[in-house]
Write a protein that binds this DNA or RNA. Structure first.
Lengths: 99, 99
DNA sequence: CGTGTAAGGAATTCTGACACG
DNA sequence: CGTGTAAGGAATTCTGACACG
């Protein structure tokens, strides 16, 4: 939550440099619901390092010829797996408490 | 080195929001050699999360009535301590290798 | 569908200076 | 010494559209 990696503080120009993607492509992936930057009061987009990692991932999938909506489905599946893992963790913790 | 916390990617407006310091003060502390942001091609300053932590530290010292050059001396002393620690670590590693 | 580009405007940042104290 | 502010300009970002395919 409050870790550096998740903080939305990076401007699109720097994201473009870091990822090698054009600003156009970065904005387009937002339009396709693949990333969700914050906005400043003035409307400037702000990204996190996690967003940058997601973008690299997206770029790889695009190279493989996938379409944006397919990538979105992959993302959703991965997020579901994470949620399942967390539930399993909770259950384990519960049973461990009971010894 | 290549950790998120050290990467200079944050713009001064966001640093100002995160620290609560005015842009004027942030630029002034650079002038007094207390922080060292990178620059974009165009000349825009770029800060790291580490810089933000330093700025909070500086702000605290200023509240205590210290002057910028005193804060700089404190910084230098702290950096020296870190270096000494690293040397001790190296020596320990060396002797441990010899058992 | 995914991405480049030119267009016009708005938000952001920069520097050097004056002010106060 | 440390910081606010108005000033003018430059760099950065934004949106909507046209283009190609």
């Amino acid at each position: 939550m409050s870790t550096y990696k998740e903080k939305k503080v990076i401007t699109i120009g720097i994201v473009s440099e870091l990822t090698g993607l054009s600003e156009r492509r970065i904005r387009y992936y937002e339009e396709r619901k693949l990333i969700f930057p914050d906005r400043s009061k003035g409307g400037t987009r702000k990204y996190s390092f996690t967003d940058i990692e997601k973008l690299m991932n997206i770029a790889n999938h695009m190279e493989d010829g996938l379409q944006t909506y397919e990538i979105r489905k992959i993302q959703e599946k991965e997020e579901k797996e994470v949620r399942d893992q967390m539930i399993r963790g909770q259950l384990n913790a519960h049973f461990n408490m009971r010894k």
